[in-house]
């Protein structure tokens, strides 16, 4: 799957950006040139040799704070996506096979979850359980899980009604066999698409919460928090919000790009697309300019 995604220019761009972001999350604190919490007398300084992105209103190095804050964003969004994955996919697939009662109950639960505004709910949970990004993200993950439920259920339904599943049943297959051998492979690509999208959504949520100062105590650096504090000094330093904003945007964009690329290369049509591109590239002896997959 990854190799096929990488055969698309859009896929390569997305994977490159996300790899950089992931590296930032792992190595960020090490790479930071200054202590992200250390204040100095040079407040609101423009970019210079010692402070490439300048300093904030307390004289802290912006680059260091960005690097240090990336871990919170990445971990938070992954937490949202993985929680949603586990909570959504399992009942999504099972709803097709475990009978009408289970199907009815899960569908109603999903309808309820969709009706809840997750940002407000996350705020409420933090108010209830204390200020912690982990709890907030877990709850958000549950709230966005309907996407995974729907996607995996829809994919399973089409497969379950297919003739090859019927053929397997006639050969004596059990439900478990059908899911393992026929359903799982077909459900994976749409789930991968949903996962990439949800990670993007997760970034937005983490950034929104930290922008509001929720989930992370103030001196701790976060992308959203940086954006918020920069906005307060917009009249002194109008360019300051650009760096954190761009970082958030690029990451979310890369997630959506990746989702598009996965969708483009998965399934029968995807196989054909990849084969066709290889053929064409081979014949013309050069690679094509990037046709960024259709709008999502």
């Amino acid at each position: 799957m990854l190799r096929r995604v990488l055969s698309l220019p859009a896929g390569r761009i997305a994977v490159a950006i996300l790899t950089v972001v992931a590296l930032l999350a792992v190595l960020g604190p090490v790479l930071a040139p200054h202590d992200p919490l250390a204040t100095s007398a040079r407040t609101l300084a423009p970019g210079s040799g010692t402070h490439p992105l300048g300093t904030d209103y307390l004289g802290r190095d912006v680059l260091s704070r960005l690097l240090a804050g990336s871990r919170v964003s990445v971990l938070g969004s992954l937490e949202v996506a993985l929680t949603a994955l586990v909570v959504g996919v399992v009942p999504g697939i099972l709803s097709v096979y475990l009978g009408r009662a289970f199907e009815w109950v899960t569908l109603r639960v999903v309808d309820t979850l969709v009706a809840l505004p997750f940002l407000l709910f996350a705020v409420a949970v933090i108010a209830l359980l204390g200020n912690g990004i982990t709890q907030a993200m877990l709850v958000t993950g549950v709230l966005v899980s309907p996407l995974f439920y729907r996607v995996s259920r829809a994919a399973t339904l089409t497969v379950a009604r297919s003739q090859y599943v019927e053929a397997a049943l006639i050969a004596g297959a059990s439900v478990g066999w059908v899911v393992r051998r026929h359903v799982w492979v077909k459900v994976l690509p749409p789930i991968a698409v949903a996962l990439a999208q949800t990670i993007g959504v997760g970034f937005v949520i983490v950034s929104s919460l930290t922008f509001l100062g929720i989930g992370v105590q103030p001196p701790e650096p976060t992308w959203g928090g940086l954006l918020a504090s920069d906005l307060g000094y917009l009249s002194y330093q109008p360019w300051a919000p650009v760096a954190p904003a761009l970082l958030i945007m690029a990451t979310v964009w890369a997630c959506n790009l990746l989702a598009d690329a996965i969708r483009d290369v998965s399934g029968e049509a995807g196989r054909a697309l990849v084969a066709h591109r290889r053929l064409r590239a081979g014949r013309r002896g050069r690679t094509e300019p990037a046709p960024t997959g259709g709008a999502s």
Binding site: Q163, Y164, A167
Partner: peptide, 30 residues
Amino acid sequence: RRRGTVQYVFQDPLRSLDPDLTVADSLAEP
């Protein structure tokens, strides 16, 4: 069914063979 005394061949093999399984895997399934 697992004994395989009776077998059935669908009208449309394109739909009755799993598109993601190789011919070998489809044949081996029963």
